[in-house]
């Protein structure tokens, strides 16, 4: 990693740990990015605001969900046109009823990403304006990217085609 990027990383870590003494859990190096911030879901909204307004990461590129069986991880990838680089924000959620505050109020592009994450790995985003199926039909009864999901024979998969 370039020296300037390492400097930026150390600077960011210092500022964030001062701003969020309890919720900020650390910044790990991650190849190709400025690093991966681990944070407590309780401070999600303030952290998003801080990252966007103070540190100028104004574009949310991706929201991902990972099923680690005993926990569930939600991962935001943000891009800054000022620093020309990515930053990852990751939070660990409990496996039973995983939920986190929505990022749509900070980055509007989170809307569809969060809908997709919700329907595929069953992470609920609180206060989301329109949390419904994006890629799967309305009323689909599974969350297919969970590890507990079994592939079905087509006859078992009962999907009602809603005729609009």
């Amino acid at each position: 990693m370039e020296a300037s990027a390492r400097l930026f990383q150390r600077d960011l870590m210092g500022k964030l740990s001062k701003r969020f003494p309890t919720g900020f859990l650390g910044l790990d190096p991650f190849p190709g990015t400025f690093g991966r911030i681990r944070f407590d879901p309780a401070i999600a909204l303030e952290l998003f605001r801080e990252i966007r307004d103070v540190h100028a990461f104004e574009h949310l590129a991706m929201v991902a969900g990972i099923d680690w069986v005993e926990r569930r991880e939600v991962l935001y990838t943000v891009w800054s046109d000022v620093h020309r680089g990515y930053l990852l924000l990751s939070a660990m959620l409990p496996a039973e009823r995983p939920h986190i505050e929505t990022a749509t109020t900070v980055w509007p592009s989170a809307n569809w990403h969060e809908r997709e994450t919700w329907e595929l790995v069953d992470i609920t985003f609180d206060h989301h304006p329109d949390l419904r199926n994006l890629l799967l039909p309305t009323g689909y009864q599974f969350h297919p990217l969970l590890r507990s999901f079994k592939l079905h024979e087509p006859e078992e998969l009962e999907v009602k085609v809603r005729h609009v």
Binding site: P137, V159, V164
Partner: peptide, 11 residues
């Protein structure tokens, strides 16, 4: 054909 696009196909 995905289930999502199925009712469009019928339409």
């Amino acid at each position: 054909v995905t289930w999502k696009v199925a009712h469009k196909l019928i339409t």
